[in-house]
Each structure stands twice: as structure tokens, then as C-alpha cells.
Amino acid sequence: MTKVINVENIITKFGNTLIHDDLSFSIHKGEIFGILGGSGAGKSTLLRQLIMLQKFQSGNIEVLGESLRGISHKSAHKLRQKWAVLFQFGALYSSLTVLENICLPLLEYTELPKGLIENMAMTKLSMVGLSSESAYLYPSELSGGMKKRVGLARALALDPELLFLDEPTSGLDPSSAEAFDKLIVELRDMLGFSVIIVTHDLDTIKSALDRFIVLQNKKICFDGNYETAINSDLTFLKEFLKAN
């Protein structure tokens, strides 16, 4: 299996506070990979490091074969087009309609004709399960679950190879959350990208993740799938999976 992300011996500090102490793991192509851990465990920080929003003090991260340490501007720009991020609250541009939000990356990064771009955007909108009536709504007119779906459609606009999601189901009702998990799995099966999810949601962990790591005490205390986790004799892990 090809590795899409390889993390080696990452150490992160904010001032004198150590956040990550020597993390290493890798993510394979086509996998839905979870980053779990209690609040403040440094999950979001790790995600932000993978997408070059935050520095790390030592170690190395390789994404799609590019080392992030000392990466040039040009390759960073190229790399950014190969991944997409869905932020916790969708981060839709509030002055643009749903359709314009989804068209934006296509208009910026490709030279495709306008009509085709709009058709693509409408198709992606339907892929994430929204009807075409929402095309001309503004983000302020959408519910939380719809915002996340539009965010996902925008993330899928450029056919990313990697999709990063920060707590995608937090703030959604259980049935919307379940539907969202299903959607991610379905899209992965269809389009074959790899997904990296930061989550607490036990349902997501059970139903969507192929493999996950659990951060605790600045280290990775588990790396494997749900079956192994449930059958392991790490009491902390069992508690964590039950408590959440």
C-alpha cells in the first residue's frame, strides 16, 4: 500500500509547553484515518501541522511524497491543490452564495469555461446530498448540517487526493451525523481519496474509520482499528471508547 502521509518523530511545543512528544505514524492511500484523543490532547494542532498551518519543532512530515520541512513556496502551492480541508464550522464565505462558494476554487485554480464550472458545482452539490434549491442561498440561511455539506462540496471541487476533516460531526444531531459519516465513506468508495478525520464521535469511530491513532499524554497510545482497540487490554482505551 502506498503511504500518502508519513509522520516521523514529531515534537511540538508552544513556548515551553510540550504538546506532542515524538509522534510517528503513517496513513495509506484510500484509508479513512482517525486522530482521536481527549480535548486539549493536540489533535487539531496535529491536523494543522499536516496542512501546513502550523510549524513543528522537530521531526518530519511527508505528504504525498513531499517533505513539509523546508518545502518551497511553489511545491507548497501545488500541494495545497491536492488536498482539501473541511473546517469545524464549514468556513463558508459568508458574502457568497452556496453555488459561488463551490465554484470559487474552480474559478481560481482552473481555466475551465464558466458553464462547465457551474455544472460541476451543481453536480458536487447533489453529491453531498443537497437539492439544487439551495444553490442561491447564503451561508447564513443554512443549518449547521447543510453548512458542513456545502463545505464538503467545496472541498471536493478540485478532486482532492486527501481530505482533512476537523470534528465533522460535532454539533450535528445523531441522524445527520450518521448520514454525514455514511456520505464520507460513500464518497471515498466512489472517488478513492484518503480521509483524515479528527473526531470524538464514537459512532464515527465505529462506522467510518478504517484505522486510528489515539493521543494521550503527548504520545500516541494506540494505533490500529476498532476491533483491536476494543479487544486490547489498555484500560484507558476501553474507557475512552466507552466514555465518548
Binding site: M122, T123, S126, S132, A135, M190, L191
Partner: peptide, 13 residues
């Protein structure tokens, strides 16, 4: 891929 997109194909309203 084509059949997946075809299922979801939509014109701009």
C-alpha cells in the same frame, strides 16, 4: 465515476 456523476448531474437552477 461516470455513472456516479451522472446520478448527481444537475444544471444550474
Amino acid at each position: 465515476l461516470l455513472s456516479f456523476y451522472e446520478k448527481n448531474f444537475h444544471d444550474k437552477p
